[in-house]
Simulated scan of single mutants.
Amino acid sequence: MKTINEITPWGTRSASYWMTLLIAAGIIFVGLRFIINPAAGADGYGIPFANAKDFPFGRIKGIRDIFSGLVLLPFLLMRMRFATACVFTAAIIIPATDCAIVLATNGAGDIQHLLIHGLTALYMAITSFLLFRNKQA
């Protein structure tokens, strides 16, 4: 097992780099929205709050979303493809579980939110495949 960070040609010229950065930036935006306007964040998620007393839970989710996006940035900036791939792949559990929660709460009729979460999980799975794929020069 290698214990050093080897600089590789992977980086801004790779589609997987930008695909990962898009998700990182997107989830940071979602987290900020939950902190700034928890009601809008909850509506966007697919499970609106019952009242303003639920807002702290939105802010709790918001800071966790921001962390989820920020945790990828150092790996991207240091061009650590394998570390990025491992963390990013583990994170697929989040939109997959979000999809299951929306399905369990709203039922199969909430196609819009099921697609948002489900397609995010699919996008992340494709990105993970690309991150792990070892391109030979």
Rank of each mutant, 00 (worst) to 15 (best):
I60D: 12
G107N: 00
I36N: 04
A40R: 03
A40P: 01
L119Q: 12
L130E: 13
D43F: 08
D43Q: 15
K135D: 13
L119H: 09
L32R: 10
T12D: 11
N134A: 11
V30G: 09
L70E: 02
L130W: 07
L73Q: 06
G31K: 00
A121I: 08
L131W: 11
L22M: 08
G107T: 01
S68H: 04
A96Y: 06
F88P: 06
F34R: 04
R133C: 02
N5Y: 14
G107I: 01
P48G: 02
A52T: 10
L70A: 04
P56L: 10
A39E: 14
G26Q: 08
T20L: 10
F129R: 07
K135C: 14
I36C: 00
L119W: 05
V30I: 15
Q112S: 15
K2G: 12
N106Q: 12
C86M: 09
T89A: 10
Y17F: 15
F129H: 11
G11S: 06
G62I: 00
I35E: 12
G58T: 09
R13Q: 15
F67I: 15
Q136W: 14
A50E: 14
V87G: 02
L122T: 12
P38M: 01
F55T: 07
A83P: 04
A85V: 07
D65I: 04
Y17G: 10
A125S: 11
F57K: 12
L22P: 08
F129M: 15
D98N: 02
G11C: 06
N5G: 09
G62Y: 01
A39H: 05
L115S: 03
S14M: 02
P48I: 05
H113V: 05
